[in-house]
Every structure is written in C-alpha cells, then in structure tokens.
Design a binder for these strands. Structure first.
Lengths: 271, 271
DNA sequence: AATTTACTTTGGTATATACCAATAAATATC
DNA sequence: GATATTTATTGGTATATACCAAAGTAAATT
C-alpha cells in the first residue's frame, strides 16, 4: 500500500479555480483513483498505452501523456518496454544520524541487497582529490554499487577512497557497508559527514541501471565522510530514484545569532 | 554563467557504449553546447519549438522533446507561453546550520524577496496538529509565501503556527523571516529542527506560482521547528524548483554502534 | 500621450499514423 | 524435456497536422 502523500496542495486561497481538466488529466485522474483505492497495488502492472487509448477512446499519444503524468508524480514507473508499474512506498533515509544507508536500512528491517557494478583503482580527478584532501592524480579506489530494496533498484552509488591508505580494500567483499568495512579493517571510523542533496536528471547508463527510461529526474546525494580528527576519508555520490526515497535530517541551531539582526524585507512584486 | 554541474556520469566501466543518439538527443546536445559554451547565458531565451524544428528540419514535436530534455536536466525552464529560458545557477541552502532560509540567504548576499500569497487562521488538520503537538482542530495561523531570488520564483512555503500561542502574528509583516519574527515578538527561539526532503510533482497552482508548467517535479522540504525545550512551535512545508536548489547538511555520528555488528550482505542478482 | 484593437508568436493539447527494438508469450523443433 | 523459432505486445521515437489560449507586439483610435 502506498504511504499517503499527504502533501495537500498548499495554495488554495479560497478559490476553487477549476483545474484545466484536459483530456489526459482526466485519464490520469481515473488511473490515480484506481491506485489510491487499492485496485492497483504496488508492483502491479498498469494498463498499456494502447489499452488506455482504447478504453478511453483517445489517441495513443494522449494515453501516453496520462501515464507519464503518473510517472512524474511518482505513482508509477516505467521499466522500458516491459511496461509500467505501480511504485512501492518510499524508503526513508536519516542522513543526520548515520552516514551509512546500509546500517539505517538494517535497523528498519529492509530487504536490502547490493550489487557491485564496477571496482577499479585510478588517479583521482580534481573534484575527488579536493574532497578527500589528496594531491591531484593520487591513486584512489573507485567502486560503483547498485542498491536494491525488495528487488527494486533504488540508488546507484560511486565511492572513492585513498588507495594508498587502504591498499587492499577492493579485495574485500564490497556488498556490505563500506563504512563498517573501513572501520573494522583499517580503523577509519566515521564521525561526521557533509551531505549535499540536489535534483538532477539521470544519465543514460544511470537510468538503465535503475531500470528507468532516460531523462528522468532523480536525487543526487553527495557525501564526504570524516573521521574523529575531521579528516575526510571517503567521498561518495549517489543517484536515487526520486519517487522512491525521502531524506530526513535533524538540524541544530548552534550559532545563536546575537540579537538576530532585523531582517529587511524586499519589495514585493505581486502585492 | 552556469555553475558546472560536475556530476560526471558515475558508471563508465571502461566501455564507451554509444549513446542511443536519437534525433531529439542530437538536437538537445547542440542546444546544451550553446548553453555550456556561453552562447546562451542564464536568463536568455532559448529558440522556440517552431524555430528549433525549422533549423534542424524536424517536426515540432521532436523539437519539443529536445527542449523538454533540457528542462528535465535543469538547464532550462519553461515560462508557459512566454518561452523557454536558460536556468540560473543553483541556490544552496544549509539545512543543518540554520532553520531559516532567509537568514542563510542573507549571509550569502542573495537578492531575496518574499511575497505573501495567502494568510488565514483555521482549525489544524490532523497532520499539522500532530506536528505541532496540538489538539485536533486547534486554531492555527496558516500563511503561504513565495520566495524569489534575483526575480526568479524559487520556492513556495506554507507555515503553520498555533494561533492561541501567537495571537496577532498575522498582523505583522510576513515578508521577513518568521523564525526571527517569532523570536523577537513572542520569545520563541528556534533551537532545532526536523527536516524531510523528498521529490514530488507540483500541483497545478504550485507550478503556476513558481512559473512552471504543470506536472514538473520539485523538491518538497518539510520542517518542524523546535524551541530550547524541544517543543515544536512551527511547522512548514516548502516546494522548491528542483533545478534551482541544492541542500547541504552536516551529519554527526552520535551513537557509536558498539562493535558495529557485522553486516551480512544479501545475494546479488546480476553477478 | 494614453488606450484600445488587431495581429503574431508561443507553448499546450490532441489526433492519426508509422516504424523500431526489446521483451514476453506461444509455438514448433530437436 | 529442453531448445530454438516465430509471433504478439510494449514503450520509444518520429512525422504532419490542427486548434486553442495566453502573452507579446504593432497598429489604429481616442
């Protein structure tokens, strides 16, 4: 069952402005109802474009627009030429408590599995070198892994660590938490992390690994993991299927702004 | 100029797998180049669908797909029937240091302006009541504001606070930081916050306020702001234009998991 | 000079059609 | 019974066309 996305429309200034109510929107509404009412549950196949076109007496392109609308909402996803399916519930990831999704997923009892897509050692590019505090072209281990929950690909991660510091890392089984691995075998304990989250489009190959069609938007999560001395020792970049995830964090207001300087408001354009 | 989105494709296992190279993809490439090379800078209008169709000798629908691909990447955005334009650089928001975007934006010297869309007092719905620790149907102030940076609508926020605790809040000018407002006039000081970030589609009216076409995906940021006693006093929901923002956070690993129990890896499906 | 009117451009929606490649299912072959 | 082979289904791409409403521009009118 889908976790109700109770993000009710925020802007209802008492007006019940009639929605455009185009043709494809009505069809999308109908399908949306079938999903919400439980007629189509998570994992179930949606009717094909041609089927929707016929039952609603519209052209296939219009049926397609309706189905794509559901995709955009995250209610459904496409598996290429296999068909479209109802999305499962979102997975929550608390980024401020733990730096490892694996550990977080474990405590929640999720059926997680990890596949190693690629692993190699190569010179660090400028961005990676900067993040890890290494010199340019310093050797780094780079490994890409695909994470699945209940069989659904959910995100793709590429991590970088210094090859000089952790020489035989790639000899270990990478299908586990690397923070745990680095902790146990190399004494590198995660103490803090800097995380950046942004929305961006997936590349062709990323989309392919995640079972998505190209040009889909996803969430990129970039993190630099530091040890007790504040030294960064692991840099990672994840691309998540945006409709399947949500990230939570706890913020602490440390720097009590002295007096909280009066904030001047700017002019308003639509008064 | 666009901040280089140095999210280089993560999955390049030495293979230079030829991209599908469809017709619309080639056109998108050409436009992408014009943007990256500076030929089209932030704010500039992209050629219209019909213009692209003519110069590349394709149908308008194919030209449209190319332009929509750029939108999906965040390189461009559509302003309805006004045309498509090159996106400005992303705005960064540090969610772990400050609970207020206004304060964060100020320190960065951004040209921020706030427009009040709606403000009213009404009984709390269950979700809001739960977040604020109030009884159901307790009166709350609800106000919706549109935030712009350099004239670009960037996010829409609806906040809820107890009307009983802060009776005349709506009498004040809401075109400023409400955390500052609550702090100065009511002694409610933000100390911590719980934040959730997820990707979702915008509603029609949200998209309209943000100058977007319908069914666009955006980033929802939900936050519960607490005072020094851990009591929640402000609940807010923001919907951001995903291509214009990025969120950063700092995580601290507090609970040192004793021994870091060995993590069993699951079976891999694509070995 | 300010306002109204007419025209043009633009993206959004919609139809009808066509071909392709990957997938899945049914069928024939060994 | 396991293995090829054929067939049907599906989403992805592409074309050509058409109408609409909103937005911008130019011309005519007051």
């Amino acid at each position: 069952m889908r976790k109700s996305n109770d993000a009710t429309d925020m802007t209802q200034p008492t007006n019940n402005a009639k929605e455009p109510e185009t043709h494809f929107a009505r069809i999308a509404d109908a399908l949306r109802q079938r999903i919400k009412s439980g007629g189509l549950r998570a994992g179930a196949a949606l009717p094909s474009e041609r089927a929707v076109a016929e039952t609603h007496n519209v052209s296939r392109m219009t049926a397609r627009r309706a189905l794509e609308a559901l995709e955009a909402e995250g209610l459904a996803y496409s598996e290429g030429r296999r068909g479209r399916f109802v999305s499962p519930a979102r997975v929550s990831y608390d980024v401020s408590q733990m730096v490892s999704f694996v550990a977080d997923a474990q405590t929640k009892g999720l059926d997680l599995d990890i596949a190693v897509i690629d692993a190699e050692t190569q010179p660090a590019d400028p961005r990676v070198a900067r993040a890890l505090g290494l010199g340019d072209d310093a050797p780094v281990h780079k490994y890409t892994r695909l994470f699945r929950v209940d069989g659904h690909p959910i995100f793709l991660e590429t991590e970088y660590v210094s090859a000089a510091r952790y020489p035989d890392l790639l000899e270990h089984d990478l299908r586990q938490s690397t923070t745990a691995l680095l902790d146990q075998h190399f004494g590198a304990t995660a103490r803090a992390g800097e995380i950046t989250i942004r929305m961006r489009a997936m590349s062709h190959s990323e989309a392919a690994h995640l079972g998505q069609s190209a040009n889909r938007a996803g969430l990129e999560l970039e993190q630099i993991i530091q040890n007790a001395d504040g030294q960064p020792f692991c840099f990672g970049r994840q691309i998540w299927r945006g409709e399947l995830a949500e990230f939570s964090a706890r913020a602490i207001v440390e720097t009590r702004p002295s007096g909280t300087s009066p904030i001047t408001s700017k002019t308003v354009r639509h008064p």
